[in-house]
Amino acid sequence: MNKFFRAIIAAWGAKKLGGGCLSTIVIFIIIYTLLGKCDNSSRGATLEKANKRTVAVCKK
């Protein structure tokens, strides 16, 4: 995920969930970090699938 869109989503979520100034900042950091971790794990899974080759075996 692009860092710009990750920040926009985290800011929107922090605005909706945060109550005060400090809690909004903490929630922003948590959401931003979680979105980054989700992005990295999905890229790794996609790369693993792309590197596997399928071999068909036909018996006569």
Rank of each mutant, 00 (worst) to 15 (best):
N2T: 10
N2R: 09
K3N: 06
K3W: 00
F4L: 14
F4A: 15
F5Y: 06
F5W: 06
R6I: 14
R6N: 10
R6Y: 00
A7G: 09
A7T: 09
I8M: 12
I8G: 00
I8S: 01
A11L: 04
G13V: 13
K15V: 03
K16C: 08
K16V: 14
G18L: 07
G18K: 04
G18Y: 02
G20F: 03
G20H: 08
G20N: 14
G20E: 07
C21S: 15
L22F: 03
S23L: 03
S23A: 01
T24Y: 00
I25A: 13
I25N: 03
I25S: 06
V26P: 02
V26M: 12
I27M: 06
F28K: 04
F28N: 10
F28H: 09
F28I: 06
I29Y: 04
I31Q: 02
Y32I: 00
Y32K: 07
T33Q: 08
T33H: 04
T33Y: 09
L34K: 06
L34I: 15
G36R: 03
K37H: 07
C38H: 09
C38G: 15
D39F: 05
D39S: 10
D39G: 05
N40W: 04
N40Q: 13
N40H: 11
N40I: 12
S41R: 07
R43Q: 09
R43D: 08
R43T: 08
R43C: 06
G44A: 04
G44R: 13
A45W: 13
L47Q: 08
E48L: 11
E48N: 10
A50I: 03
A50H: 01
N51T: 07
N51Y: 06
N51I: 11
K52T: 04
K52G: 00
K52L: 07
K52E: 10
T54W: 07
T54P: 00
T54G: 01
A56Y: 07
A56Q: 02
K59N: 05
K59E: 11
K59T: 09
